[in-house]
Design a protein around this nucleic acid. Structure first.
Lengths: 347, 347
DNA sequence: GGTGGATCGGAGAGCGCTCTCCGAGTAGGG
DNA sequence: CCCTACTCGGAGAGCGCTCTCCGATCCACC
């Protein structure tokens, strides 16, 4: 127990100590078939005695399962920005919630995710190679922009995968998503309900399906309240882009009294600009964000926002992938989650 | 090329197509020994033709290398908070920067990190088991609290590891760290230099070495300027704890005109409280944070803060680990980085 | 007491790869 | 022309595991 041999103990060692065959030890370890009670105890004692841990490589060589999946953050770095993409995305609390949800689910199944960033063609090849060489059984994909070629490549290669959001183009792949339109409607109803007469929106990048849905959902809901026109300023999901968008909105529509930002970070930026211009929130301008992330709580006033159940969605995504890995013949599935309005001070 | 056989191509298949032996293909793939030019070309053509990718499990079975390391976020979840720890840490932009630095370095070496959270005894066992079964060649550890037992356990088990911060108790293990005292001195000098007469500090949890260092570094530097007493409010590195700490400070020392918060999140909280009490920043109270993270930039006024080169540190940590994995006989090493003051509006 | 079936342990093949050892070929020196 | 030295491809063992097949044992039932 205390002596540490140069080489870790193997099944063979356990078998010798327990006085049984390798196969029997394997059966005890994996719980396959019936093994006599007494023999089980002897084997378990032997395992403890030698400090045995099954060798992952040997096991997956024969089972053809890695017991690992890839958690891929996919997107396009600006050429030459070298790692800035990784930094930006990984520092985004939204990704933290996704990772946390994935981890929370996977730990119940004893599998661990490998973290990968695919922001260049080279990196995409790495991901594909990683999966093809059996290092991971499948991929969980969180894309940050619409034209990501990786999902299609995975489908073409027949590699199991699940996405965090509906792909830009329809393809046979599992995904989880939010009913973004419903979320935007929640925001619109709240804004109009509290008496806003001139609402506007700071949208996300319009090539992202989620941004489009939030925009059309917001527009439709506002239209249903009788206002056909909604000023838009497009942002990039960052605080800085939210500031710029708010400035534009204020310049072009000084009378705006209600703003729906397509995420909290942009709402935070908008808030700063509103403060700067002496507009009180929510008295002069009501503001609603999206995501219910950290910034929503640290803002003053705290943000009224649309909450997506990100952790639950991420867990479900992991479940979809694992199910597909277990039964490769099963068809792709999608699960859509419902958002909820979290009312705080800003609207 | 286009037909997809039920089973992926192996070395054997490549060898057959190329008309050489398995060994030769292996040599070409791995670049070991000399192989005749022409044969190399034939082999490479065959590899492309069959779409060969070396099987990771088979390879690591014989090389006894996983080609993977574990990136462990270690800390104590409050009993029963179930996954909240993971969510909190992974959403922390600081961790995002660490992950990004690690990833940036590892991708140059073709290794990928497995993300693990160890917040319970069970989870710690998982990490240990994961390493002992050879699923990863070593561990990168980011601890959030001082009494983390994992580093010692890794050392005892003889498993390669590197820490992101100096361990609470000295032990033979590699780590990178910041010269926290120097960072705190930077803040103190700035505060005193701009004329603050009554400075105070919001410290991190005092059982964390980094917090202690920042506190003593700040105290010493202020003392060197002639003020022996520095009011302290202990926080927990969260925005909420920063708010509470600032409230206490203001209640007990209404005349405070300069505050050093041990991280940006707490500074952000302090800022909100300062606003609430009608204190202008930096005119009435100058405020300095630590980390130069996202919140520092999104705050208004933007935070003057002490920047740690987190990405560089994380990359170095990964390098230390990989070096140790390559040469297990090499002694543990530590690398200390220098902080820099980033001057913005808050001080 | 004989027989069929169920239960459960052991033997051994083989997963895909690396690497040592061997031997064939070539070249150079005496 | 022979012997040594060096280069480079092939054969084959073996990494640690799972799993199929086989055979031994035991029991129930006729």
């Amino acid at each position: 127990m205390s002596r540490s041999p140069s080489t870790p103990p193997t099944l063979e060692d356990v078998a010798r100590v327990a006085g049984v065959s390798r196969a029997t030890v394997s059966r005890v370890v994996n719980g396959t078939r019936n093994v006599d009670r007494k023999i089980q105890e002897v084997v378990r004692a032997a395992i403890d005695e030698v400090g045995y841990a099954p060798n992952r490589a040997a096991r997956s060589l024969v089972t053809k399962r890695a017991g690992t999946i890839a958690l891929v953050v996919s997107g396009a770095g600006e050429p030459g920005e070298e790692g800035a993409f990784a930094s930006r995305v990984l520092s985004d609390p939204f990704f933290g919630r996704v990772a946390s949800g994935v981890l929370g689910f996977l730990r119940t199944r004893g599998v661990h995710p490998v973290l990968m960033v695919s922001d260049t063609e080279r990196a995409r090849e790495d991901v594909l190679a990683f999966l093809r060489q059996g290092s991971a059984d499948g991929a969980l994909l969180v894309s940050t922009h619409a034209e990501d070629p990786l999902p299609a490549r995975l489908v073409d290669a027949g590699l199991p995968a699940a996405l965090f959001a509906r792909p830009a183009r329809p393809m046979p792949i599992s995904y989880v998503d939010l009913d973004h339109q419903a979320g935007a409607k929640l925001a619109a109803d709240r804004l109009v309900g509290r008496g806003c007469r001139q609402v506007a929106t700071i949208s996300g990048p319009l090539d992202v399906p989620a941004s489009q849905d939030r925009l059309t959902g917001f527009r439709d809901a506002v239209a249903r309240h009788g206002s056909p026109y909604v000023p838009i300023a497009e942002g990039g999901f960052t605080a800085g882009s939210g500031e710029a968008a708010m400035e534009r909105l204020l310049a072009e529509h000084p009378g705006v009294d209600g703003v729906f930002a397509a995420n909290d970070l942009m709402a935070q930026g908008a808030l700063a600009v509103l403060h700067k211009h002496g507009r009180r929130v929510p008295e002069d301008v009501a503001l609603i964000g999206f995501d219910d992330s950290g910034p929503a709580l640290t803002c003053r006033p705290r943000l009224t926002t649309v909450r997506q159940p990100v952790e639950d969605m991420a867990a479900e995504m992991a479940r979809l992938l694992l199910d597909h890995v277990d039964d490769p013949a099963s068809p792709p599935r999608s699960v859509i989650f419902e958002p909820a309005l979290v009312v705080r001070e800003s609207a």
